[in-house]
Simulated assay, not measured.
Amino acid sequence: MPLPAKAFQRWLSDVAPDTSTADVCRLSGVKRTTLAQQLVRGKVAETTVVSISRAYNINPVAALATFEAYSDLAGSTTPPTDKELVSQIATADLLHAIIARTAAGAGAGAAGTGNGTGPPELSPPPHATSVKNWVDAIDDGELRHRVSAATGVAPQNYSAQLTANRLAPELALATSRAAGVGLAGGLVASGLVTETEAGWPPGARQAALDRLSDGDLAALAGERLQALGKTLRRQEHDQEQTERIWENLV
Rank of each mutant, 00 (worst) to 15 (best):
151 T>R: 04
189 A>I: 09
234 R>V: 01
161 Q>K: 01
10 R>E: 06
125 P>M: 00
55 A>M: 09
134 W>D: 07
112 G>P: 05
91 T>E: 11
4 P>Y: 12
29 G>I: 00
22 A>V: 13
141 G>D: 09
104 A>C: 02
175 T>Y: 04
36 A>V: 04
170 E>N: 12
17 P>C: 03
210 D>E: 12
154 A>K: 13
60 P>C: 15
208 A>P: 09
133 N>R: 12
171 L>T: 07
190 S>F: 01
128 A>I: 02
175 T>V: 12
196 T>F: 09
154 A>D: 14
190 S>K: 05
93 D>G: 00
116 G>C: 08
143 L>E: 06
100 A>V: 01
96 H>C: 02
4 P>R: 14
174 A>G: 04
15 V>I: 10
107 G>D: 15
9 Q>F: 02
44 V>L: 03
98 I>Q: 05
241 Q>A: 07
21 T>R: 06
126 P>D: 13
244 R>C: 00
243 E>L: 12
246 W>K: 14
213 S>V: 03
216 D>E: 15
50 V>G: 10
144 R>N: 06
109 G>D: 10
243 E>Y: 08
231 T>Y: 07
40 V>Y: 07
13 S>Q: 12
215 G>E: 00
205 R>E: 03
112 G>E: 03
160 A>G: 05
246 W>P: 02
20 S>T: 12
65 A>D: 02
28 S>M: 03
178 A>D: 12
220 L>M: 12
142 E>G: 06
246 W>Q: 14
16 A>F: 00
53 S>E: 10
57 N>Q: 14
141 G>R: 02
223 E>V: 02
100 A>N: 12
249 L>S: 10
181 V>Y: 05
208 A>N: 06
168 A>S: 11
98 I>V: 13
250 V>Y: 12
127 H>I: 11
249 L>K: 09
13 S>D: 14
143 L>A: 09
122 L>S: 06
58 I>F: 03
2 P>K: 09
26 R>I: 00
14 D>V: 03
192 L>K: 04
157 N>W: 05
87 S>E: 00
49 V>M: 05
166 R>M: 04
60 P>Y: 13
124 P>H: 08
16 A>V: 01
108 A>E: 09
183 L>N: 13
172 A>E: 07
236 E>I: 03
24 V>I: 15
142 E>I: 03
14 D>F: 07
221 A>Q: 07
29 G>Q: 03
173 L>I: 15
176 S>T: 08
87 S>T: 03
88 Q>K: 02
220 L>E: 15
220 L>S: 06
9 Q>L: 14
183 L>A: 07
129 T>R: 10
200 W>M: 15
227 A>S: 08
116 G>T: 12
233 R>D: 10
47 T>R: 14
240 E>L: 10
194 T>P: 01
181 V>M: 06
176 S>Y: 05
107 G>V: 13
171 L>I: 09
14 D>S: 13
204 A>H: 11
76 S>W: 06
106 A>I: 01
147 V>N: 04
179 A>Q: 04
156 Q>P: 00
193 V>S: 05
243 E>M: 08
61 V>M: 07
86 V>T: 11
125 P>C: 03
203 G>Q: 09
55 A>K: 14
150 A>N: 14
88 Q>Y: 00
8 F>H: 13
93 D>R: 02
63 A>E: 04
